[in-house]
Structures are given as structure tokens and as C-alpha cells.
Amino acid sequence: MANEKGRHAAHAAGTSPKAKVSRRAAAGEGEGISTIRSGQGARVTTRKNAAEAADRARRNAEKRYFKRHPEAKASDVGPERSGKNVVLLVIASILVLAIVFVIGSCVTGLVFSSNDGSSDQPEQTLKLTEQEQQLVDQQLSHDVGQERADVGGSVSFGGDSYALSQQDDGTWALACTSSSGSSSTLFLIEGTPVALLRSSDTLLIPENRGEAWDVVCYVIDGHSGAGYVTTADGSLAGGAGEAVDAELDGTTLRVTDADGATHDVSLV
């Protein structure tokens, strides 16, 4: 009997509420493992919900970061675009298009108006009077012809006059007097001129140089200065003795010397 009472007493003591609490506390202090019962919100991560768990962890980390650093969240947010700003942007675009259209219209109008104005102007043609036309024809007929002048005389071409003139030092030169009256020296002559001849736009001056003579030539309004007439083989056209006269016969210059002999110089 005594033993049964002892067992009942021990059983009662072991199963009392205080004993249960003591055992739970001892278990908690020992291994640190607690049991989560059904309904407490626990969820085991598996392959199926791993991505969702990662997103949830990232969001939680961002929340904690922005909570500790609120200035980072403020800088990440862009300026708010209100409806008023959008309206102003649309109005500005319309104004720009209107200005471009107006400028384009003005430029187009100026271009076409200038073209129309030029086309409306009557064509003006200069028509010579009958008398003026006769003078022009006479000048052309004269210029294509031939002339001869003694020393001291002159020949003309295109309304300008050409003459031989002796300089202060005794040398000779060819001078030109324009239709306006101005005079200029074209070039100097090395020898003593015999005559001045013109065949179309070419001036010819036979000259004596020492005991021989040659022929100076000059093309009016040409691209070079005065030169000498040459023969087919490239030598100077001329002869021995003294030339006393010269005349033109078509494309031939005929020079007469002091002995009365004549010498033909081809001009072609």
C-alpha cells in the first residue's frame, strides 16, 4: 500500500502543470528548436515557389534599404508631368509649326513674285537707226580692207587711229589715238620706218636697219606685242640694201629698194 501511494504521488508530481512548464523551459534552453503549429503562417521554400520567394526577399530588402535611406527613394522619382505641362507642350508645338508655315509662305511668295515681275517686263532690243546702221557697215567694210600711209600719216581700225611718231631722242614709235581722243604709245621701232600699212587688223611697218631692211608686224588687240614677218623657213623676211617704198597687193607686201628692185613678202 505504501508503495502504491508513493507511485501515485510521484506520477501526480510529474504530471502537474508546474512540472510541464519546467520541462518546456528546460527543452527551450537546451536545443533552441520550437515547433510551429498549423495556421501560424509558415511556408517551406520549394523549387516551385523559389522565384516568388526571391522576389519577396528582394522587395523586403528594398523596403529596409529605403527605410534606412529615404533620400535614395526621393532621387529615384522623376518630375511629375501634370496635365498643364502637356497642354503647354502641345501649344508650343502648334506655334512652331505655324511660324514655319508663315515663313515658308513668305519665301515662296517672294520667289514667285520676282519671277512673275521679270516675265512681265517687255523685252527690250536695241535697234539702230538707218543712218547708224550705215555707219556700222562702213566701218566693217573699212576694217576688213587695206590701207597705206607715208611716215607722218595714219591708218585706222575700229574707230582708232594709228600713226608713226618720232620721239625726242630720235627713235620711232607706233602710237594709237582712240576715238575718245586719248593717245598712247604701243611700242618702239628699232630702225627707221619706210611706211605704215594695214591689212585688216594687222599693221605692217617696213624699216631700214643699217644696210638691210625687214618688216615689223603688229596685230591690233592681239595677245602679244610687236614682232617681225618671217618666211616659210622661219628666217626674217627682208633684204639687203635700203628700202624706199612699200605697198600691199592682196596677201603680198611688195617692197621697193633704192636700186628700184622690188621684193615680194608673203603674208600667209
Rank of each mutant, 00 (worst) to 15 (best):
N208T: 02
Y162W: 10
L97G: 14
Y65S: 01
S224W: 14
N49M: 09
A149F: 03
R209Y: 02
E207D: 03
D169E: 12
L236C: 02
S118E: 15
T46F: 05
G238L: 04
S156I: 00
L253C: 11
T45R: 03
D116V: 05
A50L: 11
Q139R: 11
G14Y: 12
I205C: 00
A50I: 10
P193K: 00
R37N: 11
K63V: 06
R7A: 08
L267R: 08
A53I: 02
T171P: 04
S182G: 04
H8R: 15
D221L: 10
G181E: 09
P17M: 15
D257M: 05
V255K: 02
M1Q: 10
S93T: 11
L97F: 11
V86Q: 06
L128H: 11
Q139G: 06
D201S: 12
G14I: 14
R148C: 02
G170Q: 10
V155M: 08
L135M: 15
L126Y: 15
A19I: 14
V100G: 14
E31P: 06
G225L: 15
V229S: 12
R58H: 06
D221Q: 14
T129H: 10
D120A: 12
K84H: 07
A246Q: 01
H263R: 03
V102Q: 12
S200A: 13
T230K: 14
H223R: 13
G83E: 05
G222E: 14
G250A: 03
S105N: 11
D233W: 01
S178H: 10
V151T: 08
S199D: 14
R81V: 11
D201Y: 06
E132K: 12
A243F: 07
A212R: 04
G39T: 11
V229H: 12
P79S: 09
G181L: 01
K5N: 12
Q134G: 14
N3L: 12
E62H: 03
D137S: 13
L204N: 00
Y65G: 01
G170P: 09
V216Q: 08
G159H: 08
E80R: 13
C176Q: 05
I103T: 09
E123A: 11
V44M: 04
L126M: 09
L203M: 04
D143M: 02
V86N: 06
E123K: 08
S183N: 03
V144A: 04
E242Y: 00
G6R: 11
A72I: 07
A2K: 08
A13L: 14
L89Q: 15
S266V: 07
S183G: 04
E130I: 11
I36M: 13
P206A: 01
A42Y: 13
S16I: 04
Q134R: 15
V144M: 03
V155G: 09
A42D: 13
V268I: 04
H8P: 00
R56P: 00
K48W: 07
Q121I: 10
D214R: 05
I103R: 02
G83A: 02
A9F: 13
L88W: 15
V44I: 07
T45H: 05
S38C: 08
L186G: 00
E123V: 07
